[in-house]
Amino acid sequence: MANNHPNSLPPPSFRRIRSQTWPQENDDDIDLEELIASLPKEKGFISPIQILYRNFWCPSEVFPGVHSFCRHFTAHDSDIILACKPKSGTTWLKALAFSALRRDVFPPSANNHPLMSSNPHELVPFFEFTIYGQAGELIDLASFSVPRLFATHIPHDSLPESVGQSGCRVIYICRNPLDTIVSFCHFAPQVKPELWSGGRSSMEEYLDYCCRGIDGFGPFWDHMLGYWKASLERPDKVLFLKYEDLREDTAGNLKRIAEFMGVPFSEEEERDGVIEEIVKLCSLSSLKELEVNKTGKPGVWSTENKTYFRKGEVGDWVNHMTPSMAEKLERIMEEKLSPFGLKFRVK
């Protein structure tokens, strides 16, 4: 395979820099306290407090990492960022993108493929949770293989300026909000069981938060539209994917992802079935059965790896939402998204 970039072995664990190397850490702490005190706040669903920052609602416990990322990250032209709202196919996209990008070092058929021993969230860390979200230490970004591969839940218009000013590429995946809400409501009790009463009443409560726009990293319609518009304006820098399309044609969309990242599959690779091997390696059924994804914690929300693999079905919302709940959300989708040509199949 002929790639035009260096691609060294990813470190087994990212090298960390101790707290004394943080830029003006003490000043940042003071600024952060003052900033938090000055910003609008609302009660959250899974987070006790949501903070309105850069025009989106940020869970209070993630805010320090988000703020540090926005202040200190400098994008490189070769960087690739995977972006999404929570529970939109994040783990799957990470596995697919990593496997396609690093396939010259780790062929999908290799017994020592990193996915065999590491959760996708460890291989493609979040800026706000992992890189800038670890108290007292910072991951050394110089230890990453080039092109560097990162992830974030932050809206497009709220990303650090260097992302838009550089040649950095962004791959965004979104999912029908109806299924996203159901998926999140199965995930929530494993993250914050003390905040979860269970049952349809809890789902209705979370739906209300989403409809009012006070959902984590939301409003969801602004989140989707930000990346949607950017993909129309700069298709060479922002690739917009729908989870439903990825499920329907995983191989075809994997080819799009690889080409967008600058590592297109060669004709020889296609003949040899490399695309199909990656699809199989990264499938939900394959990932769920790996021992590493049955145990351990990747450091995101401090939850067990197994919580990131449920059904992954399209249209499962019909088994959990009442018609009135679905209609409430569909009206907002029609009002907020449809005028810009962004629609989802809901039936």
Rank of each mutant, 00 (worst) to 15 (best):
K43P: 02
K43M: 14
G44L: 03
G44M: 07
F45T: 02
I46D: 01
S47L: 06
S47V: 11
S47R: 01
S47A: 15
I49F: 15
Q50M: 15
Q50F: 11
I51T: 02
I51C: 08
I51D: 06
Y53M: 01
R54N: 12
F56E: 03
W57D: 07
C58S: 07
P59I: 01
S60P: 00
E61L: 03
E61C: 04
E61M: 00
F63T: 00
G65H: 03
G65A: 07
G65F: 10
V66N: 00
H67N: 06
H67T: 01
S68K: 14
F69G: 01
C70M: 09
C70N: 13
R71V: 01
F73H: 08
F73I: 01
T74W: 12
A75R: 12
A75M: 11
H76G: 15
I81Q: 08
I81H: 02
L82R: 07
L82W: 07
C84V: 05
K85L: 15
P86C: 12
K87N: 05
S88D: 09
T90L: 10
W92H: 13
W92I: 02
K94Q: 14
K94F: 15
L96H: 09
L96Y: 13
A97Y: 11
F98S: 11
S99A: 14
S99Q: 05
A100G: 15
L101C: 04
L101P: 02
L101H: 05
L101A: 12
R102H: 15
D104I: 12
D104W: 08
F106M: 07
P108Q: 10
A110R: 08
A110P: 01
A110Y: 15
N111R: 09
N111I: 02
H113A: 12
H113N: 08
M116S: 08
N119C: 15
N119K: 03
P120Q: 09
H121P: 01
L123V: 06
L123Q: 07
V124F: 11
F126Q: 04
F126T: 01
F126P: 04
F126S: 04
F127Q: 05
E128H: 14
F129K: 04
F129G: 08
G133S: 10
Q134L: 14
A135E: 12
A135L: 03
G136A: 11
G136Y: 13
E137I: 00
L138Q: 14
I139M: 13
I139Y: 14
D140A: 05
L141I: 09
A142S: 14
S143D: 11
F144P: 01
F144I: 05
S145R: 11
S145H: 11
V146R: 11
P147Y: 10
R148M: 01
F150Q: 05
F150M: 06
T152F: 14
H153P: 03
I154C: 14
H156M: 06
H156C: 10
D157K: 10
D157L: 05
S158R: 03
L159A: 03
P160V: 02
E161V: 08
E161W: 09
S162F: 07
S162Q: 00
V163D: 12
G164K: 15
G164D: 04
